[in-house]
Amino acid sequence: MSFEVINPGMLTLLQDSGRQGFQHLGITSGGPMDEHAYYWANRLLGNTPDTNQLEITFGQLKLKVNAATCIAITGADLSARINDKPVRNWCTYAVKQGDTIEFDTPKQGLRAYLAVKNGFECVNKLGSCATVKREKIGGLHGNGDPLKQGDVLRFHVCSDVIDQRAPKWTIPDYDAPLELGVMPAYQNAAFSHDAQMTFFTSAYEVSQNIDRMGYRLSGAPIKSSLDGIISEGIAFGAIQIPNDGQPIVLMKDRQTIGGYPKIGCLSSLGAGQLSQRRPGQTVNFSPMDVADAEVERRLFNRVIFG
Rank of each mutant, 00 (worst) to 15 (best):
A293V: 03
W90Q: 10
G30N: 12
L11S: 06
N89P: 00
N124T: 13
I56Q: 00
S192V: 11
S17V: 05
A235D: 13
N42K: 07
I137P: 01
A112V: 10
Q208N: 15
I210V: 15
A80V: 12
E296N: 12
V303W: 14
T12F: 03
A37H: 00
S29H: 08
K107Y: 07
S218N: 14
L110T: 07
E232F: 14
N7K: 14
N209L: 10
V116D: 04
S231I: 10
S207E: 09
I304G: 03
A220T: 11
Q281N: 06
K85F: 11
N42C: 07
H156D: 07
D151V: 06
R165E: 12
T57D: 03
V132N: 03
C129W: 05
G228E: 14
R88P: 07
D211R: 05
S268P: 08
I137D: 01
F285P: 12
P242V: 08
E296D: 14
Y38V: 04
F199R: 04
D173S: 10
P146M: 04
K168Q: 10
S2C: 08
F305Q: 04
D84Y: 07
H36P: 00
S231C: 11
V249Y: 01
Q97E: 15
S218Y: 12
P242M: 09
G270Q: 05
G26D: 09
E35G: 02
F236W: 15
W40P: 01
V65Y: 00
L114G: 06
G245T: 01
Q255H: 07
G150Q: 04
S29T: 13
L153N: 00
P261S: 02
P8Y: 12
N47A: 13
G26L: 03
Q149T: 13
L250M: 12
Q246I: 11
G59R: 00
S275T: 15
Q281S: 08
L54V: 11
T282F: 06
R111K: 15
Q196A: 10
P247I: 03
D16L: 08
G21T: 08
T51I: 09
K148W: 03
T105K: 14
W40K: 01
I222N: 08
V290K: 13
A112S: 15
N188G: 05
I82W: 02
P86M: 06
A166T: 13
I137V: 15
S207G: 11
Q255C: 05
S224K: 02
E35F: 02
Q240R: 07
D244N: 15
N143Q: 14
G18V: 05
Q196D: 02
N83Q: 08
I234C: 10
D211L: 03
L147I: 04
K148S: 14
L14Q: 05
V95N: 02
P8W: 11
V157M: 10
A68V: 09
Q281D: 04
A291H: 09
I137L: 13
T170V: 14
L178F: 12
G59L: 00
G142V: 12
V152Q: 07
A37W: 00
D163N: 13
S29G: 03
C70P: 04
Q164E: 13
D163W: 08
F155C: 04
M213V: 12
G9A: 02
N66W: 13
G127I: 07
V249D: 00
V161L: 04
E232W: 14
L54I: 12
G46W: 09
L217H: 00
Y113P: 11
D151H: 11
K148L: 12
I304H: 09
I56V: 05
